[in-house]
């Protein structure tokens, strides 16, 4: 066996080791989602504050930002200000809707959270985890952008802050509202 072959073999083995290491210890939240380009599940749930039913169906034809959160989630608190700011930025556009999805939470805790941190958009409760499973959610916070056709165009796992805020507002939502192509590279 020549040196070249030996080196190739070692590189292949190292590559395989790296793959297995990534598979065993890598964060599944970084796995690319299979949902992009698919129809957004038309979910519904009671409003956290009023108890009235909210259905995604009623917002068909609009750009919808769906943000999964929970009162026990630290990263949700981190992104809360940015999320409110994002709503502030687009709330006057009649083709934009923002919805919070309260995930695995107790109603009094969720209500207290919204009272304490404030909110300017509605939030629906995910009563049995069905909404989260329909959207392939791993944990909170997770944010989805749905286009006017009802297709999932973007998903981000983690707090929408810093450059992610810029990506979602400038590269995703703004172009979608203008019927322009989006840039999913962050």
């Amino acid at each position: 066996m020549t040196k070249g072959w030996q080196l190739t073999l070692v590189l292949i083995l190292l590559g395989l080791f790296a793959l297995f290491y990534q598979g065993l210890w890598g964060d599944p939240r970084h796995i690319p989602t299979v949902l992009i380009g698919t129809d957004a599940p038309m979910v519904e749930g009671p409003d956290v504050e009023t108890g009235d039913m909210i259905s995604l169906e009623q917002f068909k034809g609009k750009v919808v930002l769906l943000n999964f959160w929970a009162s026990w989630c630290y990263e949700c608190k981190v992104e809360h200000e940015s999320v409110l700011q994002l709503h502030q930025l687009f709330k006057d556009d009649p083709n934009f809707v923002m919805l919070g999805v309260n995930y695995q939470d107790k109603l009094p805790d969720a209500q207290q959270y919204l009272k304490e941190y404030g909110t300017t958009f509605p939030h629906m409760r995910d009563l049995h985890g069905q909404i989260a499973i329909d959207y392939g959610v791993y944990g909170v916070p997770e944010t989805f952008v749905i286009d006017q056709e009802g297709k999932i165009r973007y998903k981000y796992v983690g707090p929408v802050t810093g450059h992610m805020y810029t990506t979602i507002t400038q590269n995703i939502i703004a172009p979608l509202l203008k019927d322009q192509p989006i840039n999913t590279k962050s």
Binding site: P32, T33, V34, L35, I133, Y135, G136
Partner: peptide, 9 residues
């Protein structure tokens, strides 16, 4: 159904 939501993982 689960594959369509989460992929092969």
């Amino acid at each position: 159904y689960f594959l369509s939501r989460y992929g092969d993982y």
